[in-house]
Design a protein around this nucleic acid. Structure first.
Lengths: 103, 103
DNA sequence: ATCACCTGTAAGCTGAGACTGACAGGTGGC
DNA sequence: GCCACCTGTCAGTCTCAGCTTACAGGTGAT
């Protein structure tokens, strides 16, 4: 994560959820002033990161609408946690046969 | 923040601090396998963000050494916090005279 | 004088990721 | 038929952070 637009998306989804609304892609794009393709890209990343979730539905008048919702998440960010994450990220070499790295 | 190298730097500084060592730039660069100029750039950003702090000192043999230390920090990262941050970031218009945006 | 250390910065290349425009396809209403 | 909505994806462009190379300057030891 870590891009301003990404944060704005999360913020908007959060606000709407507070008000009891769900938002579909086009509506969200309009509110944030983003193009749909761009928004799709960001939503994809957010979904991959597990921060949001989208589901395609049919509205009353038969139109396809993709609604996105925030998934609850919270993480404490401090030096210790970062050190652990980095250590965990560095070790994965379970079945590679002692071969050198990528270079 | 939010770049892998940045996290590695924080992690290494944290580890060293645990062992009671301080690191100077060149040493840190060697441990992480980064070029000094690159490390400088990252350290600059981390320092701007308030996560680390550097101080130039003279070693016993008169050589200049710049030591970097971690500053304690911790923040809880969740949707609410992001929404607040975005809202706070969006409002600053204290003395601009109702003029439009950047262009 | 030359080497092995160190700090610091500027110029330039490069590639990933942000962003746009255009497309294809579906619905309902006038 | 045409318009106003919607979803979804691709092929580009372009910006900028990341990264390298190269420089300038300082110390002490040989």
């Amino acid at each position: 994560m870590g891009h301003a637009q990404r944060l704005r998306i999360v913020a908007e989804l959060y606000r709407s959820a507070q008000e009891g609304n769900r938002l579909h892609v086009s509506e969200l794009a309009r509110r944030l002033g983003l193009s749909r393709p761009l928004l799709y890209m960001h939503l994809e990343r957010l979904e991959t990161a597990g921060l949001v979730e989208g589901q395609l539905e049919l509205s009353e008048d038969g139109k396809a609408m993709k609604y996105f919702e925030l998934k609850p998440f919270a993480l404490k960010l401090d030096a210790e946690m970062i050190a652990e994450t980095v250590a965990r990220d560095a070790e994965p070499a379970p079945d590679a046969n002692t071969k050198g790295g990528k270079g």
